[in-house]
Amino acid sequence: MEETSRQQSDLWQINQVRITLSQTRVYHNGRQQARILLWLQATEDGKFVRLTPTERQNIQLVDYRNSEGYIPFNENGAPNSYRGWSAQRNYLGYSFYPDLASGKGGDEETIELDQDAGESFEFYVSAEDGAQVSRFLSISFSIRGDNGSVWRTTGIVSYADNSDDYFSHLDVRENIEITAVPPVFYSADNFHLDRRSIIAIQPTSAALFDDMVTVSIVAAGGRIIGIRSMECVPAGMIHWINDMPDTSNPCFTGYVRPGEASVQWNPAVPKGSQPLPSLPAPERTKGVIVLCGRIDIPRADHTDPPRGPLSIVSIDEYGTLHARQLLFVRGQRDELKIQ
């Protein structure tokens, strides 16, 4: 049960604090986060009390190597930042950086602290490009009570009457540090296209088809890097194997975002008389290019259709943005490649 305001109480204080880092590194891509757990015990007149909503809101993250280095809260990461660093109260959903010292990543690690004797609060920090200059962020907390006192995990306490004090047992600055590291960018060779038919019963004409081509990132050693989001600009393109006027069997594309089933089509692309396909089920960690082969779209009827290449912009599971191009292979009817 949350406490109500205690503006007139001089008996409220922080007795114990503990800071636990789930990750010690974060990619400076503005999206990936490191998770930080603050556990504290507050008492009033010697009895354990929980923070009020105002006191919870007034918890701030501070760079303890810079007393003025307050890290601004920005739930969407950059641009509001301190030396390239931003704080969040909510998890944005990107995979955590593996902790190389322990061999554990944040996804696997569970932190348990005694909630009967205190309470814990989860915070996150993210780093953008500007953090590569400072590189290190030394984490401390400032907790402002409703009675006007400010308790810091550097051990320094400021009271409403402008007096200060220092308590060594509240000074927990040792080894509370997060490092910003460069994100990993993948080349065109790391982007793999895997094709299969959407429909179970194949049409009689091999030139008429609806296929799905999954887009995945394969890192060194064969490890699959999940794709969190993917956009194609424009949404699709069309390709005839040659420019002869009587050529009428092109292929065209649409795309599907990871975790979705609806296909995004480019209205400027001619699509013929056959019904357009839909995806049977979402691909949670991959993007999808829908590749359709048709036999009733004469090249002579379309003077300037979108023929590609198109931009394919993806954000991987760690929050790193990749921009590549998708195009048809010249001289082939239905072959795609990424460059």
Rank of each mutant, 00 (worst) to 15 (best):
M212L: 11
I199D: 13
H302A: 07
K47Y: 04
R307L: 08
Q60C: 10
Y255F: 15
P79D: 05
I36F: 03
L279M: 12
S158N: 07
H169L: 08
C232T: 10
S273F: 07
R135D: 05
P306V: 06
V150G: 01
S120W: 04
N266D: 15
D304C: 05
I178N: 03
D107I: 07
Q88R: 12
K47G: 02
F96H: 03
I19E: 00
V150N: 07
N90W: 10
A127H: 01
N266Y: 03
D194M: 10
P309T: 13
L310T: 12
K271L: 03
T153K: 06
V17F: 08
S311V: 07
L37A: 05
A131S: 13
T153P: 03
F191R: 06
T303P: 01
G221W: 05
R89L: 10
P203K: 04
L51A: 13
A188N: 11
E177P: 02
I289L: 02
H239S: 04
A117H: 11
I227R: 04
C232Y: 04
Y186V: 04
Y318N: 10
V17E: 01
W12C: 11
G148C: 11
N162F: 11
K271D: 06
M237N: 06
L137T: 03
H302E: 10
I111F: 12
E283Y: 09
T110D: 13
V62N: 08
T204P: 00
N190S: 15
Y124E: 04
N162R: 14
V49A: 09
R31S: 11
R25N: 14
S205Y: 08
R196M: 06
I227V: 15
T24C: 09
F209C: 09
G106N: 07
S158T: 15
L21M: 10
D243G: 00
Q32D: 11
F73H: 06
T153Y: 06
Q339C: 13
R324I: 08
I14V: 14
L11C: 00
I315V: 15
P250W: 06
R6T: 10
T253E: 09
F252I: 07
C292T: 12
K104W: 08
R65A: 02
P182Q: 08
D304I: 05
D304Q: 12
P309V: 12
Q16L: 12
R50A: 11
R83F: 11
P258F: 02
N66P: 09
D99G: 00
I176M: 15
G254C: 07
L21R: 04
A117N: 14
V213D: 00
W240F: 07
D107H: 09
G84W: 04
K286E: 04
E177C: 12
R83L: 15
G254D: 05
R307F: 02
P234Q: 07
R89F: 01
I289G: 00
E231Q: 12
V49W: 12
